[in-house]
Design a protein around this nucleic acid. Structure first.
Lengths: 111, 111
DNA sequence: GACATGATTAACGCAAGCGTTAATAGTTAC
DNA sequence: GTAACTATTAACGCTTGCGTTAATCATGTC
């Protein structure tokens, strides 16, 4: 069931990759731009992008006129899947307590 | 901002730990029960539980009459934080496309 | 107090992940 | 076609993470 989540969460586990997602949230970016944004060498970024691609979080949208450029864009599906799993988990409190929001508020004020 | 997410997603990245969460979704469980549920040795589970505790995903609720038993329970906060970040990310499609649900449907039917 | 039980920590071996530099492939420009 | 540019892959070193068995700590039982 939650087999896809393996690749998704593995990708999201790394701060650098999460930073890439945050950058792509603004809009599609070229590989070089991403490397610069995260202050990392090209090869390292390329590796991260491979992981993100494997998890389906990003995709190559094509070129920006130059074929040597690879523009990356966010993909929706994995985030939807993650949200679905999250909903399932959170159903726990809905079942146990009945008042999820209140519990959250109390928890936040505590910690 | 998303600094807490580091521990949360790191914890959720491992399938065994995600399985623990799925088990705890049913209700609080003792450390030994969790080890058995995931078919893993006690020490290994203890290690995983430490990671989950560090991420704030679980907490020790106390004893079940015996003080040598440690009962673990899910915590809401990290999942709420994760959902908040997820909402932020998904705002991307809301801004870009305007029709998030439709895009999701198409994406799902494709992959 | 001796002994069994539940859980964690310690020590070991192993595999996977990350980042860097060097090398390779594919494109564009002159 | 030679040179400059973008991105990826290859090779290396290092660190981190996971799982197991053995040992430790704490509690409960007789």
């Amino acid at each position: 069931m939650g087999k896809d989540l393996d690749g998704v969460l593995a990708a999201l586990a790394d701060p650098a990759r999460r930073r890439v997602v945050d950058v792509l949230r603004v809009g599609p970016r070229r590989a070089g731009e991403l490397a610069a944004a995260v202050a990392m060498s090209g090869p390292a970024m390329s590796r991260h992008l491979r992981v993100l691609r494997a998890g389906g979080l990003v995709e190559v949208v094509g070129t920006d006129g130059d074929a040597r450029v690879r523009v990356y864009r966010l993909r929706a599906e994995p985030f939807v899947a993650l949200r679905a799993w999250l909903d399932q988990v959170e159903a726990f409190w809905a079942d146990q307590l009945g008042a999820f929001a209140e519990h959250v508020k109390e928890t936040r004020h505590d910690g």
